[in-house]
Amino acid sequence: MPGSVTVRGQFQHSGSSSLYAAELVLDSDGQLSVHCHSSGEQLAQAAPADYRFGSVIPGLPVELRLRDGAVFVPDDSRYRWPQLSKGAAMAERLESHKMSILAAIVLSPLLLWWIIVDLMPMLAGAAVPWVPDSVKQQMGRQTFYSLQQTALAPTELPAAEQAMVRYHWQMALQQLQLEQQEYRLHLFKSDFFGANAFALPDGTVVMTDQLVSLLKDNPDAILAVLLHEIGHVEGQHSVRLIAQSLGATLVIGIVFGNPEGVADLLLGSGSVLLQNAFSRDMEREADQFAIAKLTELGKSPQAFADAMSALLAKHSDEADTTSSLLKYLSTHPDTRERIEQATQP
């Protein structure tokens, strides 16, 4: 126990703006008394249970607060009460020690990276099986309904082409031993999506007329696209993407707080890039699924590359602009990278 200390400072009664230049004495039993510096009048007196020290912050004096709301602030901002517990002074020591600052500079980005890139996807993957089927059904139905209202029109494909797509769909589901009733294929004409296909979490897969027309001479390529979409459903990618984005948004929000103005925008764009990165990972997963299942069905993975090449040729201007920078703005991996993956031996 430290001996008696006397500290010069400023005293204020509870809820009162009057200032007193004062002297505080803490005796060895922890008994405290405050006297006005000019008049010598006693301003306050307290037992150890009735006062507390404020936070210890670098560069600021440590105030002493009384239970009734009075406060004493030492004049010397560097003064540290000898009665302060080790724990109370710990944060300041870390915040002003060169080694801990250096460690923080190195470790913070590494850990943050690890949390977002490894931990979050892992947790999201672990959480997905807990999402009830009814929720996924609901998600799929609702989204499908709104898309039908806004972006999808009835198919105008000739019956033969429709039958060809459906044949490959049935064949894939049967041979891969997937639950028939969990998957539904729909064909739609869509000017909004163009040549495209997408999957919803309840097993609804939509392929547009435009995509079928583009690939109609190469049925295996259509099969490859269907398998890619089935890969999204099997991997539960919609739910995982939601979980990962939520996790990353929360981590960034909590750790960085609320930076003002433009820095906020910057963080905002950061999370968009991050979401796109998550999305690209899942596209790659679905690609791998499609390629693996093509082999299983006795087809060549080249079919997947053909589908991608056809899309690439259709959006040929896209090919020119897919630079190293723009790929971070995309929700899908670079098409040529996807082709290469399928054509690798």
């Binding site: 912050i57 670098p58 560069g59 944060a91 870390l94 915040e95 002003s96 020690h97 801990s100 600052i101 460690a103 923080a104 500079i105 470790l107 913070s108 850990l111 943050l112 949390i115 929360l250 981590v251 909590i254 750790v255 707080g257």
Partner: peptide, 22 residues
């Protein structure tokens, strides 16, 4: 300089405690 130390150390502690220290 002083606030940099506070910020970076608190950032690390926040990350390590999964946001609780924030």
């Amino acid at each position: 300089g002083e606030f940099f130390g506070i910020w970076i150390v608190n950032l690390l502690l926040s990350i390590v405690t999964l946001g609780i220290y924030s």
